[in-house]
Simulated assay, not measured.
Amino acid sequence: MAPRFNPKSDLVDLKGQVIIVTGANRPWGLGYSTVKHLVSAGAKVYIAARNEQQSLESIEKLKADLRLGEDERSAGEVHFLKLDLADPRNAKKVAEEFLMKESRLDVLVNNAAMVFAPYEKTNDGISKIVVTNLISPFVFTKTLLPLMAKTAQEKGSDVRIVNISSLSHKFVPNIKELKKPEDLNQDFRRRPLAKFTRYAHTKTLIIIWTRALHQHLKSLSSTMPGVERVVTMAIDPGNIDTFSNRWPLPWLWRPLVRLLMSAPNVDVGAYPTVFAAAGKKIHEDPERYSGVYLDVKMKVANPSRNARSDKLAEELWTLVEGITNDIGV
């Protein structure tokens, strides 16, 4: 990927802005590099993750790498927000606590995800990977919307919701409907690479949800002023090497693995996410970017037929709202 985007010159002014990035607790991960770029640009960023010890260690590493606090003109701040997306009830509770903590929220990056895991259901009867990758982010985002709407009413505001998807969504079989929990609870056990397909299925659902969210925000403008100005995007960050460092003999495998990657390292690999969160081009033309899918080149692109279906978007919104209402969130 050509470095046509430069986070040092192509971001809006982030000083005074508050941002949440979920699942950014691993120092070799995409979320961590995203946080690093945003903090470097002056933002106050919350790492929202389940593993507190790892998150705090990552925060200390960030502070040391960026030399935070050593220069009044230096970068922003980074804080920890304990969030467990395995349970939508926790997602709602943490979001409500955040509403008491901060008076604004400019950007939410829903980055956390379960990747390849055995097929299991929660006590609520929903696939665990669907709960972690879709249901809990849905609840977390919905609970934070009033604060984002309030922030969006400010003059010159730039409020965004960025949902991380994947190119893998294009390998999902045709989705006929999303009307009942069983439509979400696909185990794909009769297909080769079932774990990959379950993950890709949730990444399709994320794009469909983003499409539905865009429409929903417009319908809320009369009851939640400002919310229609919130820009929503789903993005494909590309293939990033966030794993070879944990393999045996990483020095041997890393050069070979990175030949297949879309970026030379994780910091560059975070560019699409950082662009979606704070790129100047989006601030200059928010209508062009709201409700869209961005590819790894940071261009508005067409996702799969499943992902661009208005019918599935409407069905998914109704289904997830029903599920969350049933469990009291």
Rank of each mutant, 00 (worst) to 15 (best):
P3L: 14
N6G: 07
K8S: 10
L11T: 08
L14S: 09
G16N: 12
G16Y: 08
I19W: 11
I20W: 08
V21N: 02
T22Y: 00
A24I: 01
N25S: 10
G31M: 00
Y32P: 04
S33F: 09
A48S: 01
A48M: 06
Q54A: 14
S58T: 03
L62R: 05
K63Q: 15
A64M: 05
E70Y: 14
D71C: 11
E72C: 08
V78H: 06
F80W: 06
L81R: 04
D84R: 04
R89W: 02
A91K: 01
K93C: 03
K93Y: 01
V94K: 01
M100N: 15
E102R: 06
L105I: 04
D106A: 10
N111Y: 05
T122N: 12
N123G: 14
N123V: 09
G125K: 02
K128D: 06
V130G: 07
L134W: 10
S136R: 06
P137G: 10
P137K: 07
V139H: 00
V139R: 02
F140D: 02
F140H: 01
A149M: 01
G156V: 00
S157N: 01
V162I: 15
V162R: 05
I164Y: 04
H169D: 10
P173G: 07
I175Q: 13
K176A: 13
L184G: 05
D187R: 03
P192C: 03
T197V: 15
Y199W: 09
A200P: 11
T210K: 00
H216C: 03
L217W: 05
S219V: 02
S219N: 11
R229L: 12
V231A: 02
A234C: 04
A234H: 00
T242P: 14
T242L: 09
S244Y: 06
P248H: 02
P248M: 00
P255Q: 02
V257D: 09
V257G: 07
V257W: 08
V257S: 09
L260N: 12
M261I: 06
N265W: 06
V268L: 01
A270L: 03
P272I: 05
G279I: 12
G279A: 13
K280G: 12
H283C: 09
P286M: 11
P286R: 09
E287Y: 14
M298S: 14
V300N: 03
R308G: 04
R308Q: 14
S309R: 05
K311S: 14
K311M: 11
A313V: 08
E321M: 11
G322H: 05
